[in-house]
């Protein structure tokens, strides 16, 4: 947990200065979104909250609805 947060803070420290210096708002927003998304997922994983894999949705969709399977 703590290690994870430290790692993400380090990442922020590395990338953020160049993003801010770049000056383009679009990059900053995109970076913020990607970073938050990535952080949330990692945090959920670290907290051992079960996240349903998107591939498993596909799996169920194919097996139960389309019945496409060998």
């Amino acid at each position: 947990m703590i290690i994870l947060i430290i790692v993400f803070i380090i990442m922020l420290m590395i990338d953020l200065p160049s993003v801010i210096r770049n000056g383009k708002k679009k990059i900053l927003i995109a970076y913020g979104l990607i970073f938050t998304f990535s952080f949330t997922i990692c945090l959920l994983l670290a907290l051992e909250i079960n996240i349903k894999s998107p591939l498993m949705f596909v799996d169920e969709f194919y097996k139960n609805i389309l019945h496409f399977s060998y």
């Binding site: 990442m11 420290m13 590395i14 990338d15 200065p17 160049s18």
Partner: peptide, 8 residues
Amino acid sequence: MFKYINKK
């Protein structure tokens, strides 16, 4: 990260 090191 490498950018940072590079910059330093």
